[in-house]
């Protein structure tokens, strides 16, 4: 167990290191310049700005300084686009929002996706299966920028307790969470169905059936745990992705989350912001994968021995 955690942590650190290194150079290779604006930026101004952000130094020095500032002072630098704001402040402000929204939509995704998958497996190749899978396929195919406006018009506008967009009322979380949950629910449904079909054809299930154990009990007691393993493996990265926000859902519903920063960071050549986010996302992804690995250990005794 400790060995697993330790090796996972080391792996994560290694992955984050390579990720940041790659993104550090990749983001600088994007065409455009962070200091371009509608009004001409003179050579002198640009030089001053580049000196202020340390962009005038050779790339290897910049790269070295980037790590140095993080490791010695915990400083991710200033945002180049939103001038005067620290990357760490931007993440600190926006992450709790994305986390809250992500957790709720993950919860919705679980309570929709898993039952849907189980039903589909139980009624394999019957109309229930087809309907469940059509719903799941639609959840994957219909993207958020189609679903979002539909929900805004169908629920947000006619219902007085729901706002179309915004982040001021506590009910404001509902529509974006539901929009986000469909993708997760759809994947979960398909993975659960697959896992469940696999388990249900096993001998021990047949034995249980032969013994006359009620279907409900077979599912909850015997089939559920192994059948959910693929879903749990998927949940790790899905968890990290969903709690770091989605650009589309956030701009449609005016949610002050982290997803917007990813896209504005790229389009405005905001190197520091993009790097800070990638670093943060990388670490989260590592933690989430570790958690899903540990969960699998608890679910599958065979893995514990290995």
């Amino acid at each position: 167990m400790t060995k697993l955690i330790l090796s996972r942590v080391l792996q994560t650190l290694l992955v984050v290191f390579f990720l940041v290194t790659f993104v550090f150079f990749a983001v600088r290779a994007i065409p455009g310049n962070p200091f371009v604006s509608e009004k001409k930026t003179t050579e002198q101004e640009r030089a001053a700005l580049e000196a202020y952000y340390g962009l005038d130094k050779p790339l290897p020095v910049q790269y070295f300084n980037y790590w140095k500032n993080i490791l010695t002072r915990g400083d991710f630098g200033d945002s180049l686009g939103m001038k005067g704001r620290k990357v760490s402040t931007l993440i600190k402000e926006s992450f709790p929002v994305s986390l809250k929204l992500g957790l709720l939509s993950l919860f919705f995704g679980l309570i929709i996706g898993i039952p849907l998958g189980i039903i589909a497996a139980l009624y394999h190749n019957k109309w229930q299966d087809y309907i469940a899978m059509i719903v799941a396929m639609a959840g994957i195919c219909v993207v958020a920028f189609v679903l979002g406006p539909i929900f805004q018009l169908v629920f947000g506008k006619p219902l007085p307790i729901l706002n179309v967009a915004g982040w001021s009322r506590s009910s404001d979380i509902l529509l974006p969470a539901i929009t986000l949950c469909f993708g997760v629910a759809a994947y979960l449904a398909r993975l659960t169905r697959g896992g469940m079909l696999d388990v249900l054809s096993q001998d021990y299930i047949r034995t249980a059936r032969a013994k006359g154990v009620p279907t409900m009990k077979i599912i909850t007691k015997h089939a559920m745990r192994p059948a959910l393993m693929p879903a749990v493996t998927y949940l790790g990265p899905a968890f990290a992705a969903i709690i770091t926000g989605s650009f589309v859902v956030e701009t449609i519903f005016l949610v002050p989350g982290m997803g917007q920063h990813f896209v504005t960071g790229i389009t405005s050549n905001d190197y520091n912001l993009v790097l800070g986010l990638v670093l943060f996302y990388g670490i989260l992804m590592g933690i989430a994968n570790l958690l899903s690995d540990i969960a699998l250990l608890f679910m599958d005794p065979k893995l514990r021995k290995a």
Binding site: P149, G156, K157, V164
Partner: peptide
């Protein structure tokens, strides 16, 4: 979204 918010 803005136009929809106005309508709401």
């Amino acid at each position: 979204t803005e136009t929809r918010m106005f309508g709401d």
